[in-house]
């Protein structure tokens, strides 16, 4: 939808995914550096690191492409 001055929903989604990606990537790196005493099944995949990276990439894409002031 295009109303003058109105932010796109995809911008909100981008910002939230970016924040989530940073938090999840950070937690994943922390677990990689200091593994927990009782690791999860397939913890060696380090899912937090690559899933956090994916969220950051998606978040950056949407928050830049639909940033305020850009005509979509």
């Amino acid at each position: 939808m295009h109303r003058p001055g109105m932010l796109s929903i995809w911008f909100f989604i981008g910002v939230l995914l970016l924040a989530y990606g940073i938090l999840i990537l950070g937690a994943g790196i922390y677990e990689y550096i200091s593994p927990p005493e009782h690791p999860l099944v397939l913890a060696e995949l380090h899912a937090g690191i690559w899933w956090g990276g994916l969220l950051i990439a998606m978040g950056l894409f949407y928050s830049v492409k639909f940033r305020p002031g850009r005509n979509n």
Binding site: Y20, L25, E31, V41, A47, G48
Partner: peptide
């Protein structure tokens, strides 16, 4: 709980 650690669990 089987696969997701901190952060992923919250998601």
């Amino acid at each position: 709980a089987r696969y997701c650690g901190p952060g992923l669990m919250g998601l």
